[in-house]
Simulated assay, not measured.
Amino acid sequence: MSRSSKGLLVLGLVAVFAAFLAMPMLTVRALVAAAKAGDEAALERLVDFPAFRESAKTELTARLMSEMREDSRSHDSALGGLGMMLAPMLVGGAVDALVNAPTVAAMVRTADLPDPADSGAPPPPVEAEGDGDIRQSYGYRDLNTFVLRLTDPDRPDEPLKLLLKRQGLFGWKLAGIDLPEARPETAAT
């Protein structure tokens, strides 16, 4: 193999490695752009909705169970135990009804979870939301998971982490969520 052939081979391998590392960042940029534009078709291509729903169900159920365990009122009643048994079903139904392209777009624009009370209401117009202040950071969690961290400056301790998972060698899709830790309620003064 000649010296120029080896150089081209090395250059080609470097280009493939750079593309391998850069693809999730390009997917994040496309996801954010589609969310800001309200482009549902693009969001449908960029989100693995079944995996995202399962992740949201797991996260929300864990948070709800944790909050119920910490609530002293739930320990004192039979209703508390019933609530802990029914919580996964209730969360599952709400997630199935809520998680769609407009909801994901709103999450990306606001760094906030949707309010289940708004499930029947149409999503607010894109211009009505102050999406310019949301801070974005991202990085690899592992070789097959890339994290987009969205932080509202008004709630810096409650970042929303969206997880992109590798789909094949170069493809990435939004497939999970890490919710901010539930903050204990403080007594109003």
Rank of each mutant, 00 (worst) to 15 (best):
S2Y: 01
A33F: 02
A105V: 01
D96F: 09
R183V: 14
L64K: 08
A19I: 11
V10K: 04
D133N: 07
E158Y: 02
K57D: 14
G120F: 13
T58M: 06
L163H: 11
A37M: 04
L13E: 02
A188H: 04
L46H: 00
R29V: 06
S55Q: 09
D152R: 11
S72H: 12
R135N: 10
P102R: 02
L160R: 00
L60V: 03
E185M: 15
D131S: 14
P125F: 12
L174C: 06
L160H: 03
L79D: 11
A94F: 06
I134R: 01
A62Y: 09
V47N: 03
S5Q: 08
R63W: 03
A111P: 01
R53V: 07
F20M: 07
L148N: 01
D118F: 12
P159Y: 08
S4Q: 11
H75K: 12
A111H: 02
E181W: 04
D118S: 15
T27H: 03
S137P: 11
F170P: 00
Q167N: 13
A19R: 06
L163Y: 07
R141G: 03
A106G: 14
A34D: 01
L43M: 14
E181H: 09
V47R: 00
A62N: 13
E181S: 11
G132M: 05
P116A: 07
V10I: 11
G132T: 03
A111Y: 02
A182K: 13
L162P: 00
F49G: 01
R135L: 15
T27N: 02
S4E: 06
M23N: 08
D96M: 06
V32Q: 02
L13S: 08
I177F: 00
T186I: 14
D178I: 09
P88Q: 06
A117H: 13
P125S: 15
S55N: 10
E185A: 15
M68V: 08
E129Y: 07
G132S: 10
M25Q: 12
T61A: 09
E127F: 09
A34R: 00
K165P: 04
K36I: 06
K165I: 10
G83R: 06
A18R: 03
K161E: 14
G38A: 05
M68R: 10
R155F: 10
L26T: 05
H75G: 13
A128W: 02
A94T: 10
S119T: 15
A37H: 05
A101T: 07
V95W: 04
M25S: 13
R69A: 13
M25H: 10
L31Q: 04
S66P: 02
V14Q: 02
P88E: 03
V104Q: 00
V32G: 01
P180L: 10
M68T: 07
A97S: 12
P156S: 07
V14K: 01
A182E: 13
E59Y: 05
D76N: 12
D76M: 13
A121P: 08
L98M: 15
P156R: 09
I177S: 01
A128P: 01
R166I: 09
S4L: 10
G171F: 04
D152W: 05
G80K: 11
T151C: 11
N144V: 14
G92A: 12
